[in-house]
Design a protein around this nucleic acid. Structure first.
Length: 828
RNA sequence: GGGGGAGUGGCGGAAUGGUAGACGCGCAUGCCUUAGGAGCAUGUGGCUGCGGCCGUGCGGGUUCGAAUCCCGCCUCCCCCA
């Protein structure tokens, strides 16, 4: 601060020049850079701390208009907080690992590193055009070995603490990207990146034990996030309580003597009339009787060709074939048929479900189709014993349920579960939709997993002192689908850290969501060579107070980061649980053809910046509508913002000494307008309502123009109004606000000033306008002194011409006065 | 199928129980200008007999008063299956 204000105001320009954004904006940014006003001072404890961050971008090559939409709002939030008196840390970086770089390498023979750093250089220039208040001295780039070294460090720590493990099994494989994917990265059965249909493959992969924290992450009491994000996370974790119950098949003399099924509706157990196995279920072969063999085999083969989405689609007809075998319902000893049906998935629950057609829609449909019995065991209110037209899903009263008859089904659930556990037929279990996080990727451009495989010692961690395991810079990129690391002999072959015999390195790299799971912490100590971050600084400055980003990360990134933070907490790195306290999800900016993103519609902002200036573009994007709703991009209307900033310029460059002043009414009016402005803008900015903040500023500019026209205000009042206008404008249009601030002779920098306050007592003029209604319809308005009594107001309202016209010849039943707003007369 | 959000002028939107349409775009008229896709001023939901009447997706309800609250429906968007 002290250093900054030593810089003399710029006097080379004079009041009265035209608003020339092309000349002003770069010059102002140089002033900011020269004084380094956005550099974070971690030691300043005189002000409360505020760690504010926008989700960092992938260095795709260019900042598009969608980035501007996201980062303009993020910057306005940071600047506003700074002017509210906080010590602000507002960093930025690049999420620099990922497939596009590698694909570019395969296509164009340019190394992913070169491609990435070129893009970053270009995007830094584009970022500079925006004039955001980032402290670039803390920039982090995740593909830098100095960064990914700490990914490897955490991987080893996770391994030591039982949070990372290697496991063989069915995984999601994207044939286009030639890599496995985490469950969160599969959308509608397709790869989240390239929309190729994902297939199942069996291969050994590394996992993080995120499910250990499933229950803890369901507790969202420590975070202030948008409801829809919380709901998304809750749904994704998908906790459900139920019962694993076994159906006896010992009559077939197999190794397995029962079929385990999972159900959340154990209260319907007496309604089981069949059991359905997934086509991939291991017991299908053994249970299929010879006469059914041909049909079952055909059915299983057909199911294998379909995707999970197709199979579980609600509109699709449910199909199945009998195996000819039966199993026993432990509760009533009934023998029910076993079928194979493709609406049951092998990967969910136990791969087998008990069929209760009376109380499950899919089972109902299935039973109707194959003429299986439908037995009601949970009766709807007033049920008369007749057949159901549809499955009855809701709670009811137990019937046809033996000793449990008459119990409300919610209670039946508990009593039946108790009985099952007491008899050893099964047990209560909690299942989750969330799976452990698969982090292995068969690609080059990511963090190498620090493991060496040794024939004698197995998977051996690379010692900490050997980190980072660096990506070889001379890897070859070919469209073979094989990772360049497998082909790279020098990288691949490494001595076993344990026994020193020859070993092979793990050639898989980490999911790039690893990088973003803790990057915010690295901003705090970007150059720390001995720790991922400084623990003392971290516990003083983290968690992030305010985080902004798009809804597309509602589950993936934000869930991984919550997991990672808890893992760090339990390993002693931090003493808090949640990484991001407040979250604001901005909407998506779209064009006629869809979402603007790195993958489509890159609408370049640079020509718009040249034509209109960064301030105009920033304000225009923030004025489009509420930030959390997004909107359709169209250039029409941007001129309105330009016109407005020209008017701001005009007002900010007028010579106040031309004013005579002395009109008390004019002065009072401008004073009221000023306090109203401050109240509106501060309240709206706190709620990220940038569109209405700008509307309030526009109104104020119009009011200032009127005041100037009337000429009744003093030069002092005028100048204080200009000051107020600029202070409130500064977070939104930082360049023009600074330039006008300096031209008026005020101390550099406006961005280090404190916002003005408002006085509730100064929000009303001497007279107020009161609406007069008759039976709720507006008939007149009256103007009364602010301090008028209720009787006075009633008299004025009742005698107003509009009221008289509608109340004569009528009986007045009631009079309702809403203080300061309206007077309603109720007539009969 | 489940969950979340939205529906208001020609357009983006404002107003979350108290004058519907703030603010802006567009449009219209006028002024200024050699000229203007510039600037300035005024107007701008529809109908009107100038008293008013109608109007916030549709139908009902609560209330002195409803875009806002309640019940039923329709449409669109997003997320999940």
């Amino acid at each position: 601060m002290a250093l900054a204000s030593d810089i003399p105001p710029d006097t080379s320009h004079h009041l009265g020049d035209r608003y020339d954004h092309g000349e002003i904006e770069p010059r102002i940014r140089e002033l900011w850079d020269g004084a380094d006003i956005y550099r974070w001072n971690p030691d300043d404890t005189t002000r409360p701390k505020w760690f504010v961050q926008s989700m960092f971008p992938y260095p795709s090559g260019d900042l598009h208009i969608g980035h501007w939409f996201a980062f303009s709002g993020g910057d306005a939030a940071a600047r506003f907080k700074r002017m509210e008196g906080y010590n602000v840390l507002h960093p930025q970086g690049f999420d620099a690992f990922g497939l596009p770089a590698e694909n570019a390498a395969i296509r164009g023979n340019v190394h992913p590193s070169v491609w990435t750093y070129d893009n970053i250089a270009n995007m830094r220039n584009q970022f500079d055009l925006m004039g955001n208040s980032y402290d670039w001295s803390r920039q982090i780039i995740t593909c830098d070995p100095e960064y990914y070294k700490w990914n490897q460090h955490f991987f080893l720590k996770f391994l030591e603490n039982g949070l990372a493990y290697r496991s063989d099994g069915a995984v999601n494989w994207c044939p286009e990207d030639q890599t496995t994917l985490a469950n969160e990265q599969v959308k509608d059965g397709k790869c989240e990146r390239c929309e190729t249909t994902v297939i199942k493959r069996n291969m050994p992969q590394w996992y993080f034990a995120i499910t250990k924290y499933a229950d803890e992450m369901l507790d969202m009491s420590g975070i202030d996030w948008p409801e829809k994000v919380l709901v998304s996370q809750e749904n994704w974790i998908g906790r459900s309580e139920g019962v694993d119950i076994r159906f006896d098949i010992s009559e077939y003399d197999l190794e397995t003597t029962s079929i385990p099924t999972f159900t959340t509706r154990i209260d319907t157990i007496f309604g089981v009339t069949f059991v359905v196995l997934a086509p991939e279920h291991p017991l299908v072969d053994e249970l299929t009787q010879p006469e059914y063999q041909a049909t079952v085999e055909k059915y299983v083969a057909a199911a294998a060709r379909e995707t999970e989405i197709e199979r579980t689609s609600a509109v699709r007809e449910k199909t199945g074939v009998p195996t000819g075998s039966f199993c026993l319902n432990p509760l009533n000893g009934e023998r029910v048929p076993i079928l194979v049906g493709d609406y049951v998935l092998a990967t969910y629950g136990t791969g087998a479900v008990m069929g209760v057609p009376a109380h499950d829609e899919r089972d109902f449909e299935f039973a109707k189709k194959y003429n299986l019995p439908i037995r009601v065991v949970v009766a709807p209110k007033g049920w008369d014993g007749h057949d159901l037209d549809a499955a009855y899903i809701a709670p009811g009263v137990q019937v046809n349920s033996g000793e449990f008859d008459g119990l409300p089904s919610e209670q039946g659930k508990e009593s039946i579960s108790d009985a099952i556990e007491a008899n050893g037929w099964g047990e209560r279990v909690v299942t989750y939709h969330l799976r452990d996080w698969l982090i292995s990727r068969q690609r080059y451009w990511g963090t190498p997993i620090p493991i060496i495989y040794c024939d004698d010692c197995g998977a051996v961690p690379v010692p900490y002192e050997d980190l980072p395991v660096e990506l070889p810079s001379d890897a070859k990129f070919q469209p073979s689908g094989r990772s360049p690391l497998i082909e790279h002999e020098e990288f691949l072959n490494a001595p076993c850290p344990n026994c020193d015999r020859s070993g092979k390195r793990e050639t898989d790299t980490m999911d790039t969501f690893m990088d973003s799971s803790w990057y915010h912490m690295r901003y705090l100590s970007p150059e720390d060579a001995t720790h991922p971050f400084d623990r003392k600084v971290a516990n003083g400055w983290a968690p992030v107070d305010q985080y902004t980003g798009g809804m597309e990360h509602a589950v993936m990134h934000l869930l991984y980061a919550r997991f990672f933070n808890r893992a760090m907490r339990d390993m002693g790195y931090v003493d808090f649980s949640e990484p991001y306290v407040h979250l604001f999800s901005h909407g998506t900016l779209t064009t006629e053809t869809g979402k603007i993103s790195k993958r489509s519609n890159p609408l370049a902002p640079d020509p718009l910046v040249r034509e209109y200036g960064a301030d105009t573009l920033r304000c225009y994007l923030m004025f489009l509508g509420p930030w959390d709703r997004g909107g359709a991009w169209t250039e029409s209307g941007i001129n309105g913002i330009r016109r407005w900033l020209h008017r701001v310029w005009d007002i900010g460059t007028r010579d106040a000494s031309e004013l005579n002043g002395g009109d008390q009414a004019d002065e009072r009016e401008l004073d009221v307008a000023s306090h109203t402005l401050t109240k509106r803008v501060i309240e709206d900015m706190r709620a990220y309502k940038y569109n209405t903040s700008i509307a309030a500023l526009m109104t104020y500019v119009n009011q200032m123009n009127d005041a100037w026209e009337n000429g009744g205000v003093t030069p002092e009042l005028w100048r204080s109004s200009v000051q107020r206008l600029l202070l409130h404008l500064a977070p939104l249009a930082p360049h023009i606000a600074e330039e006008l601030w300096l031209r008026n002779g005020w101390a550099f920098s406006i961005h280090e000033q404190t916002l003005p306050e408002w006085d509730e007592a100064k929000l009303t003029v001497d007279t107020i306008k009161i609406v007069v209604q008759v039976n709720g319809r507006v008939r007149d308005t009256i103007t009364v002194p602010t301090d008028a009594g209720d009787k006075e107001i009633a008299a004025a309202a009742l005698s107003s011409p509009g009221a008289v016209r509608h109340t004569q010849d009528k009986q007045i039943h009631r009079e309702i006065y809403v203080p300061g707003r309206l007077f309603n007369i109720v007539v009969g």
